[in-house]
């Protein structure tokens, strides 16, 4: 109960600041919308060769996961700003739970992601995506778990590096292989065998696969199990990492 209250206080404070300065939320949202509007039509002619009937049913799930990963990766930058102004230290000197300090922030990131995901899916439907509601709900839920994981990792990284200059290249370094090996833009199955095998080691590809199959209304295959398993595992690891940095963070 106390933990929830503390998390809520942190969450409300974060949300208030986001609403005051919504530039990042809008930029984060704009990116997948641009992909949908400017890249989606290119897929229309290719989609049959990729083994899909509807370009948007193929593309929206990928964008959803991309939004979850990349949007959340930037959460840590605002934490560095707060740390520099002594906010993190001031919070840590209160009796509040360290986990609540992280969870309150993650709640904001996940809520933000949820709103962005809704907009993306509605826009997808408007452009002709065909997907059952059940599949979309599951896909969004999985995206939120992945987003929570990435936001936790980003917060941990922010507190560990305490410098945008160190953090930006690290995130770039992580983002490129994630983007290229997770099949967000094109399915990995169209590539050569070695590339497909390499992408087996990329957890986010399994998550993209899971969201894609759920959007097709297919809940029987192993893709859902693999994707959900990875999402939950990543989330648990990242929250553990984040909490431990909030606990021992110094200087």
């Amino acid at each position: 109960m106390r933990f929830l209250r503390e998390s809520f206080i942190v969450f409300r404070r974060q949300l208030r600041m986001n609403l005051r300065n919504p530039a990042w939320v809008i930029i984060g949202m704009l990116q997948p919308v641009l992909y949908l509007v400017l890249f989606g039509p290119l897929l229309k002619g290719l989609v049959n060769e990729l083994g899909y009937v509807n370009a948007y049913t193929f593309f929206v799930p990928g964008l959803l996961v991309q939004l979850g990963i990349f949007g959340a990766f930037f959460a840590g930058f605002s934490l560095i700003g707060e740390w520099r102004e002594g906010v993190v230290e001031a919070e840590r000197v209160t009796p509040a739970s360290r986990t609540a300090l992280l969870v309150g922030r993650l709640a904001r990131d996940v809520l933000q992601l949820f709103v962005q995901a809704l907009i993306l899916v509605l826009l997808g439907w408007a452009m002709g995506m065909e997907a059952p509601l059940k599949g979309v709900v599951f896909g969004i839920a999985l995206t939120l778990v992945v987003g929570g994981a990435c936001a936790a990792a980003s917060n941990a990284l922010g507190l560990a590096t305490k410098s945008e200059d160190v953090m930006a290249p690290v995130i770039n370094m992580v983002m490129m292989p994630v983007l290229l090996l997770s099949g967000i833009l094109l399915p990995m199955t169209v590539g050569p065998k070695w590339l497909l095998n390499t992408s087996d080691f990329m957890p986010f590809r399994h998550i993209v696969d899971a969201v894609r199959t759920s959007f097709l209304g297919d809940f029987d295959g192993s893709a859902i199990v693999w994707g959900s398993g990875w999402a939950v595992l990543l989330c648990a690891l990242a929250v553990w990492w984040g909490t431990s940095t909030f606990r021992k963070e110094s200087a």
Partner: peptide, 25 residues
């Protein structure tokens, strides 16, 4: 504890920050 840097976010309203801080106690 009043640290060297303080603990109020420059872009938040003073009263909000003070109240949130007190509520964490």
């Amino acid at each position: 504890y009043v640290s060297q840097t303080g603990g109020v976010f420059s872009g938040a309203r003073a009263g909000d920050e003070v109240m949130d801080h007190g509520m964490l106690y």
